[in-house]
């Protein structure tokens, strides 16, 4: 009996070790993916986690497409689960932080985000953690002596969860443009009272009414992440859009042919063909003579 058990143990051991080896071998064939997790606060209620997944292939970084990334707040448990995304063609994805985050956020001094790649047939399991302290920006447009200034105040929560200003935070002052954000000054840092200022250029085009959206941004900061604050001001020069494509010209569509050309060509056609029709009618008279 004992021998049978012994035998069984040996067999089981062999099977187990084979299974472990097999698993290890499978793990060896998988590639290593790297996760880059960033935090993006567009407004207090619009916050995103951005992920970029890349891998090394033939000594080059290539994006990893179509892998599932799960996000957690604090710990990898169902309580901390925030959501998941599939990466796109560029290996990127963004998760809009769900309501569950905001419910927990108010009681936290800092947020620990975890992004995980698990149970993938091609890539090894990987985690990426990111600790973020929530920062907020207050933005004002100040006009004094015809000088326009953008003022920004940066605040974080102290240990009692009260908001306090912070000095020495690097701030970008930008304006929104169709394809990108245009800096209106060099990088500024907040002073002792958490305030930074930038002059607003006097010759910047705005929209039709002159509205310009000013953006103050903490860019990819440790530990604040990326934080933006926007404010639309009527500080730009109103631009008028001149739609030349609707004017009459040689290059416009048929509906916008220049009138003189239209008259000339049609006039010539009418005269020439009119004469020809007259001639044909005359010729048909021959028949009846």
């Amino acid at each position: 009996m004992k021998g049978v058990w012994k035998c069984f143990a040996v067999v089981a051991g062999l099977v187990l070790s084979a299974a472990i080896q097999g698993h290890a071998a499978q793990q060896d064939q998988k590639s290593r993916a790297r996760l880059y997790l960033t935090y993006f606060k567009y407004s207090p209620t619009d916050r995103y986690l951005n992920i970029k997944v890349i891998t090394r292939k033939e000594r080059r970084n290539v994006p990893v497409e179509d892998v599932k990334i799960e996000f957690y707040l604090g710990e990898k448990s169902s309580a901390g689960y925030l959501g998941s995304i599939m990466t796109d063609r560029e290996g990127q994805g963004s998760l809009l932080l769900p309501l569950s985050f905001y419910a927990a956020a108010d009681t936290l001094l800092s947020y620990l985000f975890v992004a995980t790649l698990t149970d993938n047939s091609e890539y090894l399991d990987t985690d990426m953690e990111l600790e973020i302290i929530d920062a907020s920006i207050e933005l004002h447009g100040i006009v004094q002596d015809s000088q326009r200034t953008v003022q920004a105040i940066v605040r974080v929560r102290d240990s009692t969860l009260a908001l306090v200003t912070v000095p020495d935070v690097p701030l970008n002052f930008l304006v929104e443009r169709p394809l990108s954000l245009l800096p209106i000054s060099d990088l500024k840092r907040t002073g002792d009272k958490g305030i930074a200022m930038s002059q607003f250029p006097s010759d910047l085009p705005g929209d039709r009414e002159g509205y310009v959206t000013v953006v103050v941004k903490i860019d990819d900061h440790d530990p604040y992440g990326t934080v933006l604050q926007r404010e639309t001001l009527r500080w730009g020069i109103p631009t008028s859009f001149d739609d030349k494509s609707q004017k009459r010209s040689l290059w416009s569509a048929r509906a916008n042919t220049p009138i003189p050309l239209l008259l000339l060509v049609n006039g010539l056609i009418l005269v020439t063909w009119g004469i020809m029709i007259y001639i044909v009618r005359e010729l048909l008279q021959i028949k009846h003579i």
Binding site: L82, G83, S84, I85, D88, E90, G93, S94, L99
Partner: peptide, 11 residues
Amino acid sequence: LATISSCTGPN
């Protein structure tokens, strides 16, 4: 702007 992202959670 953009990229598809999904938003599901246990809640």
